[in-house]
Amino acid sequence: MTNPDTKTERYESASEPVDEPLVQIRDLVYCRGERTIFDGMDINIARGKLTAIMGPSGTGKTTLLRLIGGQLRPDAGTVHVDGQSVPELGYRSLYELRKRMGMLFQNGALLTDLNVFDNVAFPLREHTQLNETMIRDLVLMKLHAVGLRGARDLMPSELSGGMARRVALARAIALDPMMIMYDEPFTGQDPISMGVLVSLLRTLTDALGLTSVVVSHDVQESLSIADYVYVISAGKVVEHGSPDDLRQSQSSWVQQFIQGKRDGPVPFHFPATDYADDLFGGGN
């Protein structure tokens, strides 16, 4: 466990996950305009495990996934995936690496002109020479895994939010990738869809031996399935450890975050002048 008030510890420390992580991020600095999103962040994603990356809205969790996937380049620091330095990869090497990575976008990002079947078949048709019979079997297996084999003929506009994400999940595992990144998979879901997704993430990680990275601010759901958790805020890792470690964290900030307390180190009120002065100051 790290102290949020000290500089983030390096991966080599004894409390870190496992050897040879699939994703290694070191001294990551990324700025958007004048704003620094990440300021010297270190993260390791262990192979075959489900790692949750949590933090308040706007801390750059989705940006982190885009940096891992090579859609953005860091201003400083390194991002290694399976031993390859992502920012230094050329066009072809990056696309080859992405064939072994899946990503589930927050809204599913299904191709709206294709039905469910064709959406899942899309990466298979683009990257393999399989015949249509084989593709059909594979697509039905993937759809069956997410419980939507019967919805194969529906268009994306006919799906609920939860179903769209499950179809996107089936598409993400179509090429049997080594890792999947989930961007806010639980946001805006009803309890049943949430339960289904939570269970699917854990089951797929275990059954397929996947490395899963879940970016989320849904604390309880993430803690219930994660093997390891990073909490990030203000561009740094403020805490990391197993879900139990996190629950017992001494950091008041972490406790406020995981318990959803209204007030604490993160104040309820946005910084402002004195309330009484503001009310009785006559607008001056």
Binding site: Q71, E96, F105, Q106, L111
Partner: peptide
């Protein structure tokens, strides 16, 4: 994000 999804599907 359909274009981003395509990029991530290589």
């Amino acid at each position: 994000e359909q274009l981003s999804a395509m990029e991530m599907m290589a």
